[in-house]
Amino acid sequence: MSGLSEEGKKDVKKFTDWVNANSEEIPPEIVYPPKHDDHHGHGHEHKEIVIPHEETLREKMAKREHIDENFQEEWQNVMQKANDDPSSPERWYRLASSIGGALIVLVLLITVANLPRFGSPDAPAMNEVARRYLESGLQETGAVNSVAGMILDYRAFDTLGESVVLFTATVTVIFLLQQKERNHNKEDIEAVDGNYKGIRSLPAKVIVAITFPFIILYGIYIVLNGHLSPGGGFSGGAIIGAGLVLNHLVFGQEFSEKFINVNKCKKLMAGGLFVYIALKTYSILTGANGINSHIPLGKAGSIFSGGLIFPLNICVGVVVACTVFSLYSLFTDWSS
């Protein structure tokens, strides 16, 4: 200010005085463009931009900090009270919940103690249903692995329900999280979509580079061999999904997108479920009405056997693998 002339200093003084005198009258929010009295007519409409006045912003921030402090103090007081005062309700809640938990554990333990011995022939699980599955399962379903024969032939409707539950859960999560993203403005979305470059640890990269193909191969083997050996669509799909997640985690988004991304996942999930429903509808229509099914059961023990179990396993595997991967992708937010 020292560089100013006498005249300039006077002007600055005048201005600051004016601001001090009129600071009460400055509106809390500045509206641009300013509203004129209506002498221009209705030729065109301006879009209003509301800029909050700095003071109002500061007040809001101060209020918010105040609330946070108050809340923390309040909470600490409540906790302190609960610890000090023996008659406070918080103390009784704790006591009641401990007693309730102990009771539930007691009931469960008594139930377990009264169960029939594992594998005993008198157990209710060893009824004619289980005998039928074990004795004629191979003949009727063509699957060497009787578990696969059970869940994908006798009880395939159950498995359909499970797949639909997984599908619905994933679709709901996708819907909710995308809804949230849509409300951000553009800058936020660019931050959210930040390209994840992978982790920097060299040993992790080397180990995953070696094991990743084998994990995927093992998962595919379990899915395809589900009717012959332990495993099947669900466990194999989970292994493939976990392998894809590991790949994304270690090598980053760019490399992972070569294999799969969320959009492909959505299509694959819907496709897998659709194929499952179509195949099973055929089998229910023919089987339940005594119509001759045109799908051969094949020679027991070969890879193309078990009738519909083989393709159904693949469908379940695809749905589960995509579910696991898309849940992972939706939960990651690499910008934070």
Binding site: N145, V147, I222, P230, G231, G232, F234, S235, A238, I239, G241, A242, V245, V324, L327, Y328, F331
Partner: peptide, 17 residues
Amino acid sequence: DLAITEAAVGCGVTTLL
């Protein structure tokens, strides 16, 4: 069957989530 599923889902996917 359960062992494979437990290993894949219990150890792998649940922990990750």
